[in-house]
């Protein structure tokens, strides 16, 4: 089983980055050459970039009408330099929204680790790369670090909202992104593990409560929160702040919290925001309306 501790120990022993360990292990377990694995990841990074671009279209709207156009607002403000937290933070939020909106509007995305949480990792990695003038190779390698963390979470807990709530989707993506950008900024493998632990700790207990069962409300804005959380965790780790609870124990805690969540808060659209008066009204309008009931036919 993949553990964060195991990854860190191997990296420290060999004097390499976490991404090197993940790349090495993948090469050993699949027999695929490292160059091919890197090439595959380059392609995924390039899809992520395209999703950002598509999602930034101000005219984009989802089938339900619930989403689209918000990342364009955020990007405009971030580029103007007038936003509260400056261009780096503004662009990261805008990209998390953009990729998630692209997903909601049936655009092409990379599940990272899921479609519902697909905005966090591209936002963190692409914005860090751009704002810190880092080569693309650094971003590609960081995606392997993210994958290693994701595997540890998927094997030790879950990355499915139906199983573990939103903490398992947005939480996992946020922890993956935190570790990835910590490595991009020159953090040690141990710092990456602390970044992962802190990001995951911050969202323990987050429930999956999508309005009308659609991957839109609150999923899209939670992707913005997810990248903000990843940035906070990475900043803490990079200045030497440590998580008192090790990453693997946080993952175990996440699993237990997920197991004790009632079904109504695990993607069934029966609790949380989905069960608010407005959530129910929106669901009725979208799913119960004439449009949804009508049998559609193409002649």
């Amino acid at each position: 089983m993949t553990t964060v501790k195991g990854l860190v120990e191997q990296a420290e022993k060999e004097g390499v980055a976490l991404s090197d360990v993940v790349l090495q292990r993948e090469n050993e377990s699949t027999g695929t050459r490292k160059e091919e694995l890197l090439e595959h990841m380059y392609r995924n990074l390039s899809v992520m970039r395209d999703s950002c671009r598509e999602g930034e279209n101000p005219n984009l709207r989802s089938e339900s009408g619930l989403s689209g156009g918000d990342s364009a607002k955020m990007m405009e403000r971030a580029r103007s330099g007038e936003n509260l937290c400056g261009p780096f933070f503004g662009k990261a939020l805008a990209r998390a929204l953009a990729v998630s909106e692209c997903n909601a509007c049936m655009g092409r995305i990379v599940a990272a680790p899921t479609a519902g949480s697909c905005g966090i990792l591209p936002a963190a990695v692409l914005t860090t790369m751009e704002e810190k003038n880092l080569p693309e190779e650094t971003a590609v390698k960081a995606l392997f670090t993210a994958a290693g963390i994701g595997m540890a979470i998927a094997e030790g807990a879950s990355i499915s909202g139906a199983q573990g709530g939103c903490q398992a989707e947005v939480g996992s993506a946020s922890a993956m992104a935190a570790a990835a950008i910590t490595e991009m900024m020159g953090g040690t493998p141990d710092m990456c593990a602390h970044a992962c632990a802190m990001a995951l700790k911050n969202v323990l207990g987050l429930v999956c409560d999508p309005v009308a069962g659609l991957v839109e409300v609150p999923c899209i804005k939670r992707n913005a929160m997810g990248v903000a959380n990843a940035l906070a965790a990475a900043e803490m780790a990079l200045c030497g702040i440590e998580s008192r609870i090790p990453a693997d124990e946080v993952i175990l805690a996440m699993r237990r919290v997920g197991d004790s969540m009632p079904g109504s808060l695990r993607e069934t659209a029966e609790g949380g925001l989905a069960a608010t008066p407005t959530g129910r009204r929106l669901a009725e309008e979208i799913l119960g309306g004439k449009k949804a009931e009508k049998t559609q036919e193409t002649p």
Binding site: T2, V22, E26, S29, T30, L37, H40, M41, R43, N44, V47, S62, C102, N103, A104, C105, M106, G107, R108, I109, V110, A111, A112, P113, T114, A115, G116, C118, L121, L143, F144, A146, A147, G148, G150, M151, A154, E155, I159, M176, L214, V215, E216
Partner: peptide, 21 residues
């Protein structure tokens, strides 16, 4: 579990079960 099970698949959204599946 493999790297591209986590960073992937590349798919059309919004849902791996309701769309990609």
């Amino acid at each position: 579990m493999h790297v591209f099970d986590i960073i992937g698949p590349v798919m059309i959204g919004p849902s791996s079960s309701h769309t990609a599946g």
